[in-house]
Computed example of a mutant assay.
Amino acid sequence: MVRRREFVVDIDLDVAPGETVAVMGRSGAGKSTLLDALAGLTPLDDGVISLDGRVLDRAPRVRTAPMQRGVVLLGQQARLFPHLSARENAAFGPRAAGVPASVARSAADEWLARVGLPGTGDRRPAQLSGGEQQRVAVARALAAQPRVVLLDEPLVALDAVTASEIRSMLRERLAGVTTVAVTHDAVDAAALADRLLILERGRVTQAGPVRDVLSSPVTEVAAKIAGLERIVGEASDGGWVCGRLRLESADAASRALAAEDGRALSAVFRAVDVRLGQGVRATVSYLEPTPAGVRVVTDVAVAEVSPGEAAPLRAGDVVHLSVSPDRVRFVAAS
């Protein structure tokens, strides 16, 4: 547990050997505080951190220095040593551990090749692109043979193409390495992690296999992370209602939840699955362009439609909305 000015970060986190756990949440939810505590950069106010049965921290008496934990932290910036070559950067961890220089440099060259940078050992960070620097940072981290890797949004500063390439490389190189990955991108979580934790104001509000959490979010934060719309209503006659909006689901688990009239449920669906032209009456609040089309925000729900469909619409217009049952899931409201 770590006490912050606004709230307490209190998380029960158990990561199996070789497992990757992603942590997502709003900015300021406590994600970086969690990683800093695991890395030994922030002391615990209460609780225990252990690794492979060894107690690293136990507040207030036991605290292991960052360099002695067997844990490496990869952040948004590569933070390479600017005066060292890529090879010497990658060799730094093994050399600090007492590995002979020639052996450490040979291993560094092998790691540079594994992260997609063969033959770049003599280049300094200033001669490398941002994506190449991040690859060197990964090589440096893994060459140290850490017991745990912590990722603090290492792709956020990269362009989309480079981020995709680094994500693919991380998926390959972190296979079998115990990892905790903080990210704002659900694509990162789905690509890299086995499990996902949703963190809100220092507490875990949902946890489970990545796809389960993303498909059935129980809070508004989890729904936004998953790119889903979430509306809280209640079960009624085998379906779900909220005001004048009624939805049904073809999902067996959702139908089971809806069997109990009056039960508080959230309906979750994608805005792109909302259709205009029939269904419940709604009033357009505003239109919001997106890379793929236009979000039509109404007083009932949000629909994402093509620019052509949105072209005649204006704020205040009346539209009709519907969602096919095979595109809707019901989740117990938190």
Rank of each mutant, 00 (worst) to 15 (best):
R203L: 11
C242V: 14
S129M: 04
R135P: 03
E304V: 07
T183D: 02
L257Q: 10
D36N: 14
A267D: 04
D45G: 10
S249N: 07
E132F: 04
S106A: 14
E88N: 05
A90H: 01
G131C: 02
I198R: 01
V331C: 11
A90N: 04
L128D: 07
L321H: 06
S285V: 15
V210L: 08
V204Q: 03
S164I: 00
W111H: 13
R263C: 03
V103R: 15
G227L: 06
L41D: 01
A104Q: 07
V21G: 04
R79E: 12
T179M: 01
P118Y: 02
V318L: 13
D46C: 04
R123F: 03
G121H: 03
V156W: 00
L321Q: 09
R201C: 01
R3P: 03
V213C: 09
L265V: 06
D152N: 09
V2H: 07
G18K: 08
L196F: 06
L265I: 05
L80Q: 02
G239Y: 11
E19C: 08
L34P: 05
L174A: 07
E248L: 11
R54N: 10
E229Q: 14
A333G: 07
A78Q: 05
D251L: 07
R135S: 00
S322M: 10
L142H: 05
